[in-house]
Computed example of a mutant assay.
Amino acid sequence: MTIHITVTSDFICPWCFIGERRLAKAIQALPADTAVELKWRPFELNPDMRSEGLNRKTYRSLKFGSWERSQLMDAQTAVAARGDDIAFNYDAMEKTPNTFLAHRLMRLAEHHGLATEVARAVFSAYFEHGRDIGNVATLVDIATENGLDRQQTEAFLAGEEGVEEVRAAERDGQGRGVRSVPLFDIGGEIISGAQSVQTFTTALQRAMEQDDACTGGACSIG
Rank of each mutant, 00 (worst) to 15 (best):
A80K: 15
A80Y: 13
A81L: 13
A81P: 12
R82H: 10
G83H: 10
G83E: 07
D84G: 07
D85T: 12
D85L: 11
I86P: 08
A87W: 00
A87V: 11
F88L: 10
N89D: 15
Y90D: 12
Y90K: 03
Y90F: 15
E94T: 13
E94H: 11
E94N: 11
T96A: 07
P97C: 07
P97F: 12
P97K: 04
N98K: 00
F100W: 03
H103C: 05
H103F: 02
R104E: 05
R104V: 02
R104Q: 11
L105R: 01
R107C: 09
R107M: 04
L108A: 06
E110G: 12
H111P: 00
H111C: 02
H112R: 15
G113S: 06
L114M: 13
L114Y: 01
A115W: 07
A115L: 09
T116S: 14
T116V: 08
E117H: 11
E117C: 00
V118E: 05
V118H: 07
A119G: 09
A119H: 08
R120D: 07
R120G: 15
R120F: 09
R120A: 10
A121Q: 03
A121G: 01
A121F: 00
V122A: 00
F123G: 11
F123W: 08
S124K: 15
S124H: 12
A125S: 12
A125F: 03
Y126S: 02
F127R: 04
F127Y: 11
E128C: 12
G130K: 03
R131W: 02
D132W: 03
D132R: 04
D132H: 13
G134V: 02
N135I: 02
V136Y: 06
T138L: 02
T138H: 01
L139W: 04
I142Q: 00
A143P: 01
A143N: 02
E145P: 08
E145I: 09
E145F: 06
N146P: 10
N146G: 07
L148T: 09
D149E: 14
R150S: 13
Q151M: 14
Q151K: 14
Q152G: 14
Q152F: 00
T153G: 05
T153N: 08
T153Y: 06
E154K: 13
A155G: 14
A155W: 01
F156M: 11
L157A: 09
G159L: 13
E160W: 07
E161L: 14
G162A: 11
V163L: 14
E164R: 13
E164C: 06
E164G: 01
E165G: 05
E165W: 10
V166P: 07
